Simulated scan of single mutants.
Amino acid sequence: MQPVFEGRRCVIADDVRSSREVLNRWLQEFGLVTSCESDGLAAWESIQEDDCDLLITDIEMPGMSGLELLNNMRSGENPRYQNMPAIVVTSLLDEQVADVVQDFGGTTLVLKPLNKTVLHEVVGCVLSQRPVEPVYMSLQSDIQEASGISPSLRYLVERARANDC
């Protein structure tokens, strides 16, 4: 595959090392310069240190969650962070997760297990400023959503909103 976005910078935030490594490899094939972080706080610091074109973040992480990271980006005064595309990846099955991600300013949601073709499509659309769907699933995914809001998602939403400055 020909690198499409050579030199553009992406911060990856995921507490699962194997997920970070896979995302890192796939995005580098796409020409992106990547920075991998294991939690939202380290990702937030990385985003502020260097210009960044894209964030890919998990939701459930120790320390600062992906929702708290999005909240920091969108509620700050820097328009660069307010407008930076943010792809949220999660294995959290919940019928309201897409709405929550949108409420916190996520650009789109990609459900795990991740698929290279789907990820490249989504990243290509986001970085080219083409429209994206609210949710993308792995091509082999037959996952049924849980009904209602899960206790895990409810806790993360409440924690992120409580930390809203």
Rank of each mutant, 00 (worst) to 15 (best):
M1Y: 10
E6N: 10
E6I: 09
I12W: 00
D14Y: 00
D15R: 01
E21I: 10
N24S: 13
L27N: 01
E29R: 08
F30T: 07
E37S: 08
G40P: 01
L41V: 06
A42L: 11
A43V: 04
I47V: 11
I47L: 10
E49L: 12
D50L: 15
C52D: 00
T57M: 04
D58R: 02
D58S: 04
I59G: 02
E60M: 14
S65D: 10
G66H: 01
N71H: 13
R74C: 05
G76F: 06
E77L: 11
P79Q: 12
R80M: 05
A86T: 05
L92K: 03
D94N: 08
Q96M: 14
A98V: 11
D103N: 14
D103K: 15
G105I: 12
G106T: 02
L109K: 05
L111G: 13
P113Q: 02
K116W: 00
E121N: 12
V126K: 04
V126T: 11
V126R: 04
Q129T: 12
P131R: 12
V132D: 07
P134S: 13
L139F: 11
L139M: 13
A146Y: 13
S150H: 06
L153Q: 09
L153P: 09
Y155F: 15
R161Q: 13
R161K: 15
A162H: 12
